[in-house]
Design a protein around this nucleic acid. Structure first.
Lengths: 127, 127
DNA sequence: CAGTATCCCGGAGGATACTG
DNA sequence: CAGTATCCTCCGGGATACTG
């Protein structure tokens, strides 16, 4: 088993650290949820907050700011009263849907097996 | 680009919380690295530690224990002196390779664009 | 409504020392 | 070598109050 393809090996790639950091950011709990909420359609701040549930404004704001900074979402302000802000995925943001769904699908498909393993393991190592 | 399939919507799936938790665990920085190191071939404890670099024994141990508990890796002890322990991916563990590589590939492919966005955004919002 | 500003706490995670 | 045990630090992230 060699590794001539210089591209897709995460651990051996030169930019490994940056890639891993980015994976960590996207893989973040709240970020994943926010992105998946926006996949269907653009949404407003409190709408996201309600849908995600259990997130503080602070964390939602942070997550959205990071996503905006990285160009995965856009923030559109309507200068009405009361103010209205709409967040939507950019094309770049949408492009992450497929790989993200792959992961989610994998988890959904294997969760029962994983939880069975976990239960079995815990039964064998109760102490 | 539609999205009628009633299954793969993370945010709306009934087991959303557990799935999200699992995504968070697998998406963990160290866990990703450990899994990707093991993809190539089984490896020993200190070998992993060296390859990953920057991880403490404690964190490596924890990560490996979790992966073992979930049935993604197996821990094989050779009762030699000095002791030798080999970690390897289970079939379940291997099965996550594809979706994981999808994510990694996406990041690698779009990292330049993302970093450009970031730079542009920071330039426009220096304060 | 959509944030920003503070305060605060628990736990993630590093460093070190010890053991089988 | 492959851990376990202990200590300690830092910051992720919740709660709350205030603002445009």
């Amino acid at each position: 088993m060699d590794m001539p393809p210089p591209l897709e090996k995460p651990g051996t790639h030169p930019a490994c650290a940056r890639v891993n950091e980015m994976l960590g950011r996207i893989g973040d709990k709240w970020t994943i949820l926010a992105i998946s909420m926006l996949m269907e359609k653009p949404r407003r701040f409190n709408e996201l907050k309600r849908m995600i549930g259990g997130i503080s404004q602070q964390m939602l704001t942070r997550s959205l700011r990071f996503l905006e900074r990285d160009g995965l979402i856009t923030r559109k302000v309507y200068p009405t009263i009361p103010p209205q802000v709409e967040y939507s995925l950019t094309p770049l943001g949408h492009s992450i849907a497929a790989p993200m769904m792959q992961m989610a699908t994998w988890v959904i498909a294997h969760l029962p097996e994983i939880e069975a393993n976990r239960a079995a393991h815990d039964a064998g190592t109760p102490a």
